[in-house]
């Protein structure tokens, strides 16, 4: 923990709001979020449905910009950036893991993992993709299409895809939401391993308390604001 305190600041959100206008009415999905995250943290975000968890993940992941407030990612103010710069940041720094996997159905597992490398550094794309598949234990499924894989395997391909570009930040929005408990456990183990062994900052949105309890910090949200933010006392492997 002490080590973490000294790690540099990765994410800093100050009074961030996100307002969606639905015709006449405006919906404030984020209503003044203040949050700091250091490099190498393993965090879970909890909260009821509609509390703004996904919106927060989208803002952090540079898929969307805040309506107001300040968002600094690795010393760079994101709010004022243009779409193409945001795309570059997503490509270089951020890996997404989706609840519904979002693999392209007509591509093989390998081609899916290579996808982010089409839009950035494409050197040794195949080797890096194979290596990423190997790290999630799917080296032997490289030529399979998503339809030929189980849900858990598809999600591991999704993680490999997020991983292959060596991101500094991995965002997983309900990554186990569609999985049985066995597969969920596998996925969580992989995500924890990436955080522990490679120092990747991992943020997991989850509804399940036992998943949250395995992370180092639990952020609770309600109605677009952070209502609770607590560090989990190291009960298992929390001390490196």
């Amino acid at each position: 923990m002490a080590e973490l305190q000294r790690a540099r600041m990765l994410i800093d959100l100050q009074n961030v709001t996100k307002v969606y206008s639905m015709g006449e009415v405006d919906v404030a999905a984020l209503n003044g979020v203040n949050l700091s995250i250091r490099d190498g943290e393993l965090i879970s975000i909890m909260g009821p449905s509609g509390s703004g968890k996904s919106t927060l993940m989208n803002v952090i992941g540079c898929l969307d910009v805040p309506t107001s407030g300040r968002y600094v990612l690795e010393e760079q103010e994101v709010g004022s950036l243009r779409d193409n710069r945001l795309a570059e940041i997503r490509n270089r720094k951020i890996g997404f893991v989706f609840q519904t996997y979002n693999l392209l159905p007509r591509l093989t597992a390998l081609a899916n993992v290579q996808l982010p490398m089409l839009y950035g550094n494409g050197n040794n794309a195949k080797e890096r993709a194979l290596d990423a598949l190997d790290r999630v234990g799917l080296a032997d499924r490289a030529s399979h299409r998503p339809a030929e894989l189980s849900g858990g395997q598809q999600q591991r391909v999704g993680i490999a895809r997020a991983l292959a570009k060596q991101p500094s930040l991995l965002l997983a929005d309900e990554p186990t939401g569609n999985l049985d408990s066995g597969s969920s456990e596998e996925i969580l183990t992989i995500l924890k391993g990436l955080n522990r062994d490679e120092g990747i900052t991992v943020i997991i949105v989850t509804h399940e308390a036992d998943i949250a309890s395995q992370t180092h910090r639990i952020i609770s949200m309600r109605d677009g604001v952070v209502v609770n933010d607590k560090n989990v006392v190291a009960d298992q492997g929390g001390s490196e």
């Binding site: 898929l63 779409d83 795309a87 997503r90 693999l103 392209l104 950035g120």
Partner: peptide, 14 residues
């Protein structure tokens, strides 16, 4: 698919 590609860093022109 377009959404996924964009999330992975595809730019407008890509």
């Amino acid at each position: 698919e377009i959404g996924v590609r964009k999330a992975m860093g595809a730019k407008h022109r890509d």
